[in-house]
Amino acid sequence: MPKQVFLYSTDGCHLCNDALTLCQSVGLSPTIVDIVEDDNLVHLYGTYIPVLLVEREEQGLFWPFDAEQIKQYLKFYGIS
């Protein structure tokens, strides 16, 4: 079963919208996770969003990133 890819985000975050557009430009449709709904996620990512994270992996891809970095990040975790 393929791993999910999450985009940690929140409403009204223009950088998060830019990150989603970049993801879509490389054919990725990440699951959007609004960090505001979880205090732990706010603590972990509140000042760093947007953050791309592969399911069950510890290392995320933190903003700023570009399309090539998204591809390399996914490739590292075996997602094409």
Rank of each mutant, 00 (worst) to 15 (best):
D11W: 09
S25K: 13
C13Y: 07
R56H: 06
I35G: 04
P50V: 12
E68D: 14
L61W: 11
C13I: 14
E58I: 05
K3D: 12
W63T: 11
V5G: 04
F65T: 07
F65G: 04
K71R: 14
D39I: 14
C23F: 08
L41E: 04
S29H: 07
E37N: 14
N40F: 14
L41A: 05
C13E: 10
V36M: 01
C16R: 02
F6W: 04
I70Y: 06
K71M: 05
Q24H: 15
N40Q: 15
N17D: 15
P30D: 12
I70F: 02
W63E: 11
L7Q: 04
C13S: 14
V26D: 12
L53K: 08
K3A: 12
A67P: 09
A19T: 10
I70P: 00
Q69Y: 11
T10K: 05
T10W: 02
C23H: 06
D11L: 09
P30Q: 05
Q59V: 06
T10A: 10
W63L: 15
L52N: 01
L15C: 13
V54L: 04
T10R: 11
V54R: 01
V42M: 00
G12N: 06
V5Y: 11
W63R: 08
G46Y: 00
Q69R: 11
T10N: 03
I32Y: 00
Q69H: 03
K3N: 14
G12R: 02
G78Q: 00
K3Y: 12
S80A: 12
E55Y: 01
L20C: 03
Q4D: 04
L61H: 11
E37S: 03
I49C: 03
E58K: 00
P30R: 02
T10P: 00
L53Q: 02
D34S: 10
S25F: 12
P64H: 10
Q4F: 08
T31E: 15
I49D: 00
L44E: 05
E68I: 04
I35Q: 05
Q24Y: 04
F65P: 00
I79N: 04
D11M: 09
I32V: 10
D34L: 13
T47H: 11
F76V: 08
D34C: 11
V54Q: 00
L74T: 02
T31L: 15
F6A: 06
T47M: 07
